[in-house]
């Protein structure tokens, strides 16, 4: 018997997704449906974590808005995410950047990776 669950999950995957890693600064274009109207909201910040795999993959984006830290978790393969733009590549030593939550000022930034 084929693995139907695996098949179904693979069908959910988006064919093309931008490649990004924790530490990167990204812009998320998220579709928001309000009644019948649809608009796009942009969320810009640093990717601090990627979790799960396959169709269940999620990532967390953190930004500091007017001195208040804001984090948003997105589902990578959700049809509501119109596009993801990578603005800057970050140089990190770990996969989860939760330490950024306790940092203020320059130490709360990630060094840019230059190729």
């Amino acid at each position: 018997m084929p693995d139907y669950i695996k098949q179904l999950e693979e069908e959910q995957l988006k064919k093309e997704n931008s490649v990004f890693a924790p530490g990167d600064t990204v812009e998320i274009y998220q579709k928001i449906i309000e009644g019948t109207k649809e608009r796009v909201q942009i969320f810009k910040g640093i990717v601090i974590a990627k979790k799960h795999s396959g169709s269940k993959e999620t990532f967390t984006v953190r930004k500091v808005s007017k001195g208040v830290g804001v984090e948003k978790i997105f589902q990578l393969h959700s049809p509501n995410i119109a596009k993801i733009v990578v603005l800057k590549k970050g140089k990190t030593r770990r996969a989860k950047l939760y330490y950024l939550r306790n940092r203020v000022g320059k130490s709360s930034t990630v060094k840019e990776k230059r190729s």
Binding site: Y4, I5, L8, K31, I33, S55, K56, Q75, P79, N80
Partner: peptide
């Protein structure tokens, strides 16, 4: 078994196959 799938509206709902 169980998994979850996306609807057209982008909702992720748990399903039993």
């Amino acid at each position: 078994g169980m998994t979850r799938i996306f609807t057209k509206n982008g909702e992720s709902i748990p399903v039993t196959v």
